[in-house]
C-alpha cells in the first residue's frame, strides 16, 4: 500500500517537473505580432471580415492575405493602428469611413421578438419577449450581427451621437 502511494507520488512529481521544464524550453511560440493585433481589434468575433474571429483576421493580416482594412467595426482608427504596428502604408481616404456606427432600435417597429438580443456578441441589446428592445451605446461594437436578424427592420446602423463627453475640438485649418 505505502509502496504504491510513494511510487505514484514520485512518478507524479517527476512527470510534473518534466512537463514544467518542457513548457519552458520546448514552448510552441505563437506569433507575438498576431497577439498584439488581436489586442487592438474589437474582440467581438463578429465575422464580418470573413475570417474565423478576430484571431483569424489578425493571422491573415500578418500573413498578408487580408488587407489591414478588413475589419468594418474597427473603422479608420483600427486601420491606422494596424498600419502603424506593421509599418504599412494604407490609403485611409479610400476607406469611405464616416466614423463609427452603432445599432439603434426604431421603437415604433420593434415587436419584441428577442432575435437580435440572442445574436449580439457583447450582450448590448436589452429586451424581453414583447418588450421594446434597446441598445446600450457603450457596449455596442457596431458588428451588425443583429441587423439581418430583425424581422421588422427596426434595427438600423446610425453614427455614434456626439455628446459633450465625446466632443473633440476640431483641428485648426492648415496655415
Amino acid at each position: 500500500m505505502i509502496a504504491a502511494i510513494l511510487s505514484l507520488t514520485v512518478l507524479g512529481a517527476i512527470l510534473g517537473i518534466a512537463l514544467g521544464i518542457a513548457n519552458k524550453f520546448l514552448k510552441v511560440e505563437g506569433n507575438p505580432i498576431v497577439d498584439e493585433l488581436v489586442d487592438l481589434m474589437p474582440g467581438s468575433n463578429c465575422g464580418q471580415c470573413g475570417y474565423p474571429g478576430c484571431v483569424g483576421a489578425a493571422e491573415a493580416i500578418v500573413a498578408g492575405t487580408a488587407p489591414a482594412t478588413c475589419c468594418p467595426p474597427g473603422g479608420k482608427a483600427l486601420v491606422s493602428a494596424i498600419a502603424a504596428k506593421l509599418g504599412l502604408t494604407v490609403d485611409l481616404s479610400a476607406l469611405g469611413d464616416d466614423g463609427p456606427k452603432i445599432a439603434t432600435v426604431a421603437e415604433e417597429l420593434c415587436i419584441g421578438c428577442c432575435r437580435c438580443a440572442r445574436v449580439c456578441p457583447t450582450d448590448a441589446i436589452l429586451g424581453g419577449p414583447k418588450q421594446i428592445h434597446n441598445v446600450f451605446r457603450e457596449a455596442c461594437t457596431g458588428c451588425e450581427a443583429c441587423i439581418e436578424k430583425c424581422p421588422t427592420e427596426a434595427l438600423v446602423m446610425k453614427p455614434v451621437p456626439v455628446t459633450l463627453q465625446h466632443w473633440v475640438m476640431p483641428k485648426p485649418r492648415l496655415a
Binding site: L40, P42, G43, N45, T122, D123, A124, E138, A139
Partner: peptide, 12 residues
C-alpha cells in the same frame, strides 16, 4: 471601451 466590450464578449 474596447477592453470593456471584449470582456463582455468573453463573459457571454
Amino acid at each position: 471601451r474596447n477592453d470593456a466590450t471584449k470582456k463582455l464578449a468573453q463573459q457571454r
